[in-house]
Design a protein around this nucleic acid. Structure first.
Lengths: 225, 225
DNA sequence: GCTCGTCTTGGTCAAATGACCAAATATCAC
DNA sequence: GTGATATTTGGTCATTTGACCAAGACGAGC
């Protein structure tokens, strides 16, 4: 039998090999993605605490031994779920705010994602991973990083919006506004996950009316030069 | 050996006895509270997914067999943790907003709870329980109920504040404002739990300046009649 | 100080879990 | 084809888990 230290060394070597990811075949890539997909579905249906290697393998339709062969540990798998998910999240966010349309339309698009299905499905993945992060420094670190990326996208969008609407930057400090939007966003999601809807309609309408008012007062622009 | 159905019946009867809570001795009451206290500490230190009957008993310094004798199940214990916690939360909230002081002072008191220690300690309990609720209808139902109680306290406080500051209720719809404050509150907490601090200072200062402005413009009141 | 019902203790049990592995199988370079 | 390498399978293993319980300790009322 191998000694404990020997086995630890083996594992380290294997982990390094996995990290390098040399010569990954398409079939394996597909299988790994299937595990990550399955993990997302389980995050939605049972939460992070309910994910086990066997349930995951069953959900993915793959052998349970592969979970450790591919990822080395559950922890590593969930970290990869987080990275894949947040990469997509950020690029989608970037794409939306980059579009060439009046700010109010971008805002309305963003708000359209606050519907029942999206929150209890797609968004729940994100909050399950965050909840996991409250008790896991690695995950938490990544979450904080993603927030930075999100903030930089939103900051740029709001910076342009404030020019678009000619808002006084002393009266509306950009960073404070972005932070408010961030808390608003997170707060809406979290309340919805807990089944709370009180005042949401009123709040969304209020904000929309405010934006409409800004639209009305919008300084006329010259046609694009 | 008892049949499965017989044992189920026994359990039902025992659960009813527990629910009635007839003749609970002070010693037992103390022990139950010790379990609930221990559960809160574990929610802070390891999160809900890390709580097991044995860890709980060790944390409470009591025998692990008692967990099931007293509460019947982990689920029931956590529900009681939630109820005790939220009862205290609401009454503290009520007390604070009931005090006779300018609104700005109440607000500042509320914001003073957004410090590092309180969020990563006391508040974490609340969010761990909410995260549990995302995958547990019983818990979620209770969470939604607590939000209603919270909202009614805050609504009343803001109603008076709007009179105090003579704010236009068309321009600031009460329910929308309360919902905004709710999302702000939840959002701040959640971001802090994920280690995010970006823009928080700026946001809090912005709000405070806004309230200061309202204080300055505050209509003079006659001395109490 | 005895009796009877309640509480407490220190287990037990089956099920589930993460981790790991040997053997079988597939794939590929030559 | 053949040998080498990588992948896949179907386990095993030591732990841990929630649930449960028998037996003894305890204490209130007599």
């Amino acid at each position: 039998m191998r000694s404990a230290s020997q086995r630890l060394e083996d594992r380290t070597i294997k982990a390094q090999q996995l990290r390098r990811r040399v010569g990954i075949t398409p079939a394996r890539e597909e299988a790994e993605q299937a595990f990550l997909d399955a993990a997302e579905r389980l995050l939605v249906s049972v939460g992070y605490a309910g994910i086990t290697t066997r349930k995951l393998a069953e959900e993915a339709g793959l052998n349970h031994g592969l979970v450790h062969y591919y990822f080395g540990s559950m922890q590593e798998l969930l970290l990869q779920v987080l990275e894949r998910y947040t990469d997509r999240l950020i690029s989608r966010q970037r794409e939306m705010y980059a579009a060439d349309m009046p700010f109010i339309e971008k805002w309305r698009t963003a708000m359209s994602y606050l519907d029942e299905d999206n929150v209890s499905g797609y968004a729940k993945i994100w909050y399950e991973l965050q909840a996991l992060g409250w008790n896991d420094p690695d995950i938490r670190k990544r979450v904080a990083k993603v927030d930075q990326a999100w903030a930089s996208v939103v900051t740029e969008a709001f910076d342009r919006a404030m020019t678009e609407y000619d808002l006084d930057r002393d009266q509306f400090p950009l960073n404070a506004v972005v932070a408010l939007v961030a808390t608003f966003n997170v707060g809406m999601h979290l309340r919805m996950l807990s089944g709370i809807r009180t005042g949401h309609r009123e709040l969304l309408d209020w904000i929309d009316r405010w934006l409409q008012e800004l639209e009305r007062r919008k300084p006329k622009r010259k046609a694009a030069s």
